[in-house]
Design a protein around this nucleic acid. Structure first.
Length: 483
DNA sequence: TGAAATGTTGGGGCG
DNA sequence: ACGCCCCAACATTTC
């Protein structure tokens, strides 16, 4: 290739300019830069984005394109199988190199490996980088040389091995390559299928790397000190809410670590909070570590004895759960928060997942699919990891018999019922004492609060006590074949 | 990163 | 003063 042939920077789940290793390497190469995003919904094994993800992606691409434009570079949009699109782009632009940051979905690994081969045999330099994880999945292993299957030793080892890289600076002006044709973002129709697209999600989120940085700074400036407790409180703004930004790479985990690490030396609550945040960040790495080494974890029970579990085929029950009409206020609040905002507090994710799997005996895969469609932070490794954790079928998972009680979880983590009142307004006037179990409230209390069970708020769709017993009974059948 | 059932202990009422 | 029972509070076991 000639010295002036451009470098193609292939953006994927790294939709940021700051601290982006692939982009930084392109800058270092001193060649003109061609930035591209490919909407690939057709490569082998790929799972298309859900509705909420498409909404986020649309705005994230707008934001990235605008940031790049400010530095003199256009973001080229193309659609189709990545391998073919890349060869077209190389042909059209005479690019001599393609740089990208790695993804870890099984289909992405397979596709990108093949693409790397293809590029090399066409004499195009192909380089991939780590822009999404603290450590690559192959960078640490147990003393036996195996992948980690338990979080705590993984976390310990990560802290031993991880060295925070220096931040990479990106110049205000990037060397621009001659433009090639780009799709029009609006033609991709990404906004059409998003849940509640007209309102809630838009009001809840500001997409883009500037917003991510602001959110992180604001979180570390105060709330982090209360994080160890408040991260369990859906009624409080106690979490970082960084999950969608991390998934799309609008912020990278190194950037979070870089900002939080200085707090570790401060001692007291702030240090404890920062420690807790970084531990959660490491769960993200752990889930990707698992998915890289056991790609089937995204769709199959990691513990194979769960293959014989007698799940119920219950589309009606699933739909009631999806709509947040189970009659359990804490569960319904979570499901409605999800539908309205594209996000759900993690404590509540565990409770609603436990309810679907154990109270309704519906396969975790159905819940995973709903989250995939409705979460703006939908991430294959984290989503499947979370669901398998709750189901008890995953690596280092909660045991099956750990069944959440939706009433006591609500009383513990939403003691004043504020979270329920926000998302289940038909119960807003109930006193806190009854808000997590309206069916136990005296008739006059319900009347006073305008709650008519079975009319304007459902009766519980199952009796939790009985459902719990039923789940434990169903588990007995596969317990003996525990692997 | 549970919850429920079962077991233990110790104070107080009471004959 | 003693034994007995009750039951809350806490601990342990089980699912």
């Amino acid at each position: 290739m000639s010295a002036s042939s451009p470098v193609l920077v292939w953006f994927r789940q790294d939709l940021r300019i700051a601290d982006n290793p692939a982009l930084a390497a392109a800058v270092d190469s001193e060649r003109p830069i061609l930035a591209v995003y490919i909407l690939d919904e057709v490569s082998d094994g790929i799972r298309p984005h859900g509705g909420a993800s498409r909404w986020w992606l649309h705005h994230s691409l707008e934001s990235l394109a605008s940031d790049l434009r400010g530095r003199g570079v256009s973001l080229i949009l193309r659609r189709g199988a990545a391998a073919g699109v890349l060869s077209d782009l190389i042909e059209e632009s005479d690019a001599g190199a393609v740089y990208w940051n790695r993804c870890y979905e099984p289909w992405a690994v397979a596709r990108d490996t093949a693409i790397k081969e293809q590029l090399k045999s066409a004499d195009v330099a192909a380089e991939s980088f780590n822009g999404s994880l603290l450590l690559e999945p192959w960078q640490i292993e147990t003393q036996q040389g195996d992948p980690y299957k338990v979080f705590t030793p993984f976390w310990k080892q990560l802290r031993e091995v991880y060295r925070l890289p220096d931040a990479v600076e990106v110049p205000d002006e990037l060397p621009r390559a001659a433009d090639v044709a780009s799709d029009d973002l609006t033609d991709w129709d990404l906004l059409h299928t998003a849940p509640d697209w007209a309102g809630g999600i838009r009001e809840t989120w500001t997409v883009g790397e500037d917003a991510a940085r602001d959110l992180l700074a604001a979180f570390l400036d105060g709330p982090v000190a209360d994080y160890p407790d408040d991260r369990n409180r859906p009624d409080r703004p106690g979490t970082s809410r960084l999950s969608p930004y991390l998934h799309w790479g609008e912020i990278g985990p190194d950037q979070v670590w870089r900002a939080a690490a200085p707090l570790l030396d401060k001692g007291g609550a702030t240090a404890k909070g920062a420690e807790s945040l970084l531990r959660e960040l490491a769960w993200r790495d752990f889930n990707h570590h698992l998915m890289f080494h056991f790609p089937e974890i995204a769709t199959e029970n990691w513990k194979s004895n769960f293959d014989d579990f007698t799940w119920k085929d219950d589309p009606g029950g699933l739909a009631v759960w999806q709509k947040g009409q189970t009659g359990y206020p804490f569960v319904d609040a979570g499901m409605r928060e999800l539908w309205h905002t594209g996000w759900m507090h993690n404590r509540v994710r565990m409770v609603v997942a436990s309810f679907l799997i154990k109270d309704l005996l519906v396969h975790w895969r159905d819940g995973e699919a709903w989250f995939w469609d409705t979460l703006v932070d939908a991430d294959l490794a984290n989503n499947a990891g979370g669901w398998q954790w709750v189901a008890g079928s995953g690596a280092d998972a909660a045991p099956f018999f750990r069944i959440f009680n939706p009433i006591t979880q609500g009383e513990k983590f939403d003691p004043d019922g504020e979270y329920v009142r926000r998302w289940v307004p038909e119960l807003a006037k109930l006193p806190s004492k009854w808000i997590h179990k309206p069916w136990d409230a005296p008739g006059e209390v319900l009347a006073e609060a305008d709650v008519r069970l079975g009319e304007n708020y459902p009766e519980p769709m199952v009796d939790h006590k009985g459902a719990r017993a039923r789940a434990l009974e169903a588990y007995k059948a596969i317990k003996s074949e525990e692997s």
